[in-house]
Design a protein around this nucleic acid. Structure first.
Length: 486
RNA sequence: GGGGUUGUACGCUAACCUGGUAGACUGCUAGCUUCGGGAGCUAGUAAUCCGAGUUCAAAUCUCGGCAGCCCCA
């Protein structure tokens, strides 16, 4: 037992995922050197391994954007106040969270500048000058950047952060039809990235009026679930109609010579998804990073003593050389013992660990361990390349399947309000229930159960026939995904 | 906005009640011995949130500020 108490003083996690989720979440992120807190409250530092994860998410998404014909651009960080004020709903939604720059050096600006909370206004000022003719459309631009929203609620790394990184896509079309068609394409891209890169599954659907984006006609989201059963909004897509084009005067001459306002969309995926990824996959030993996002995919730990040190390290390097196109690291330092390294790389979430010592050297094989399941396996060094790639695929698949099963086992379809209340308080998750469409019922439900209308899942709407609103009993118009929400 | 609570080294913590040498663990640096699940020894490095008051003497008591956390609105 003396060992136990000593261990706790070392870097091991003291909180358990099951017992104290938020404490565990923080410990995992900090102890694994994934992130650090900064001197500014509510803003974290992305250390190399977490920035690597973001870079990969970005890369995977960007390839799909480019294939779809969306180009990258970059617009200013600072937005003149008069721009923000142009679209009334938009400014009303963001005003409380905007950070302002009021001067430089000892001088004060005549007009203060907002640090972008989102870039609609600064981009659409340009769009209004760039779009003159139907030939200029569609205009589909994206930027990868950072935004600042000075939240006052308790900050949580990645999940609720005052500065975060994201993509913001802003597109303009000549017709409403074309604009609406973009939704499926973009949500499809996000879903593919979530599944194939982050190993996560969410529920796509339409937002209620109350929850839609400030300035949008309709909003859509992929809603995610955290391990504690609370919902969190994932990537989103907003159909802005002509709201912004009218405020920013983005009009063009159509084929018949008439002036028309463009139809617009905006969409985003943010670093918040890293938080969901960490929370879903990791365990009491530390981080678990899906193979495609891991800075080091395979770590090789040579186990040696004075008499065989050189040849064992050489053997480890030899195995590394046999592995093509994977990110492999040989930790041959003698500063730490093998046991120390095992724990360290588990804490950091490296998908596969390989151990090579005297036994392996003599038998020309290697011993390996999966981070996700803890299963050990061995392979002959000549088959290292294929074996490891296959195993990384299995790890991804396993993580994705577990995440999907968790989501599915936490979706409940309910038609009775008493049962609804019971589920929300006892077994948090998504509760899908029929709703009449009135904000009044939505508000009452939120007030009585603390569950928010997260979105209206596309695939659940077919069940609407003959159902009544769970709150008022009037005929239902939508099936809504209610949940306690971050 | 109201109430509670906590600020000691990178981190964690002791001394606080009862004022008097700031002590462990971890980390970090160096050396020697180790190395198949967080190795051992030796030496070194590093701290009382800020300001005022009481006192011969303040990490400790009092007041104010700042910061974190919790609860309520």
């Amino acid at each position: 037992m003396e060992d136990e108490s000593k261990k706790e003083q070392i870097k091991a996690l003291t909180a358990k995922k099951k017992d104290n989720f938020s404490e565990w979440y923080t410990q995992v992120l900090i102890n694994s050197e994934f992130i650090d807190y900064s001197a500014v409250s509510g803003i974290i530092v992305f250390r190399p391994s977490s920035y690597f994860v973001w870079d990969k998410i970005k890369e995977a998404t960007d390839v799909l954007f480019k294939e779809a014909g969306i180009k990258d651009a970059y617009f200013p960080l600072f937005i003149p106040e008069r721009f923000l004020n142009k679209e009334k709903e938009h400014i009303a939604g963001f005003n409380p969270e905007v950070a302002w720059v009021t001067g430089a050096g000892s001088s004060t600006f005549d007009e203060r500048l907002a640090v972008r909370p989102t870039s609609e206004t600064i981009m659409y000022d340009s769009y209004s000058r760039w779009i003159k003719s139907w030939r200029d459309l569609p205009l589909r631009l994206n930027q990868w950047n950072n935004v600042v929203r000075w939240e006052f609620k308790h900050p949580t790394p990645f999940i609720r952060s005052r500065e975060f990184l994201w993509n913001e896509g802003h597109t303009a079309f000549a017709t409403e039809k074309e604009a609406l068609e973009e939704r499926e394409q973009v949500l499809g891209i996000y879903q593919k990235v979530l599944r194939e890169v982050l190993a996560l599954e969410g529920v796509p659907g339409k937002k209620t009026n109350k929850e839609k984006f400030a300035g949008a006609v309709a909003s859509y989201s992929i809603e995610m679930l955290m391990p504690d059963g609370w919902a969190i909004q994932g990537p989103d897509f907003h159909n802005d109609g002509q709201n912004f084009s009218k405020s920013f005067d983005i009009k063009f001459t159509d084929k018949n010579g008439n002036y028309e306002y463009v139809y617009q969309n905006t969409f985003a995926i943010s670093t918040r998804m890293i938080g969901v990824m960490v929370a879903m996959h990791s365990d009491d030993k530390g981080l678990v990073i899906p193979p495609k996002l891991a800075e080091i995919q395979v770590v090789i730990i040579p186990i040696y003593n004075d008499s065989n040190k050189e040849k064992i390290i050489k053997y480890a390097e030899e195995i590394k050389d046999k592995i093509k196109d994977l990110r492999v690291y040989v930790d041959s330092s003698s500063a730490y013992s093998p046991g120390w390294k095992f724990n360290e790389y588990e804490l950091k979430g490296i998908p596969i660990r390989i151990e090579v010592g005297q036994k392996e050297y003599e038998g020309k094989f290697a011993t390996a361990k999966r981070r996700d399941t803890g299963d050990k396996f061995t392979f002959k060094i000549d088959e290292a390349d294929g074996k490891l790639k296959e195993m990384l695929d299995k790890i991804h698949e396993n993580l994705y399947n577990k995440a999907k099963e968790f989501l599915q086992s936490h979706i409940h379809k309910v038609y009775d309000y008493e049962k609804f209340k019971d589920l929300i308080s006892k077994d948090p998750g998504f509760v899908q229930a029929p709703w009449c469409g009135s904000t009044e019922c939505e508000d009452k439900i939120a007030e009585e159960t603390k569950a928010k209308a997260t979105n209206m899942p596309f695939d659940a709407q077919k069940d609407i026939e003959g159902k009544n609103c769970i709150y008022c009993g009037k005929p239902a118009k939508h099936i809504v995904n209610f949940a306690r929400s971050y």
